[in-house]
Design a protein around this nucleic acid. Structure first.
Lengths: 170, 170
DNA sequence: CGATTTATTGTTATAATATAACATAACGTT
DNA sequence: AACGTTATGTTATATTATAACAATAAATCG
């Protein structure tokens, strides 16, 4: 589902999007990927979970749980906070969405097949987030940690700044 | 204020502490450092701010804003959430404490003189946090980001796992 | 199939985290 | 002392997240 029209290193899972980005296709690809993974793992991508995933994927910006809830409520009267948080917990556990800790928000994962933590570049201007999963970074961190006798379970790496488009464009 | 009895790379700002750690000294050193920096910058380390810093520094585990508030209230009747959040905002802005995003908690900074984001190793067993500020890591991240045309403002790097002591000891 | 168990969703309430907005007080000039 | 500025007090509320238990739907097994 990442835009592969431009040359893009393969560790970039979701790049910052340009104007030509066909988000409808991108969204459909994400849903199909999640369906396939659930099928394979014997998990139930229920209509509710699927819809929440769809709502999270409506943009390449992180979305807040309560924003998802507001949208969900318009079509699903019984939706309440637990409804959304449970769906997000499921989607997160299966790696279909990531939580951005520094924003208390969620974003669709660009590579739901493999499990990974990912590294996130967050543009302060357009609000978009690019996900990368760079082996050099994880290797270095794990090497550094190991030297201090620390064994890594998982990592939160969130980098704020200005994306290429916003740097030049705006 | 880090324990320098053991050989420790200098990019380790606050190591995981062993039993011999004299925390009273450690705490005093942190307060003195903050005083010195405020003096130098012409800032006011008021009794309130100083006390909040002291409360944050009472351990090498991250502390929650409302836990600080509870302690503060025992001696300061008028303390309310804004009291604590304002003090923490000040301490954070000046680099005397760091916020751990993935825990919604705060921890004393091991090197308040220089401004930096730091990288945090969070032990899931003892709850302690070690702060490092490794140039190799920041350099690599900035190089990787730059290749994608991204300019970094600041970074959140929080690594969960098991510290050396907990790995062997427990 | 029908009974049983398990997973999912509904529902109500509340906990935990954080900020807005305006009032008062202290401090630092001149 | 008068002034502007910074810090704190105070009340209220916004935002984010979970607990606890009930009802329903799906999967499993005899």
């Amino acid at each position: 589902m990442p835009d592969r029209n431009k040359i893009m290193p393969k560790h970039v899972l979701t790049p910052f999007q340009d104007d030509r980005h066909a988000h409808a296709d991108c969204l459909q690809a994400a849903l199909k990927a999640a369906e396939a993974v659930c099928e394979q793992r014997g998990l139930r991508l229920t209509p509710l979970r699927r819809r929440v995933l769809e709502l999270v994927w409506q943009s390449h910006e992180p979305v807040k749980a309560y924003d998802v809830l507001d949208k969900l409520r318009q079509e699903h009267r019984s939706a309440a906070p637990p409804t959304v948080y449970r769906a997000l917990d499921f989607l997160q556990a299966e790696g279909f969405v990531h939580r951005i800790e520094s924003l208390n928000a969620f974003i669709g994962c660009g590579a739901p097949q493999q499990s990974h933590d990912g590294q996130f570049l967050i543009c302060r201007s357009c609000g978009e987030v690019a996900e990368i999963d760079d082996a050099d970074i994880t290797t270095l961190l794990s090497r550094k940690a190991h030297r201090l006798g620390f064994v890594i379970d998982n990592e939160t790496i969130e980098i704020r700044g200005l994306c290429a488009g916003c740097k030049t464009g705006a």
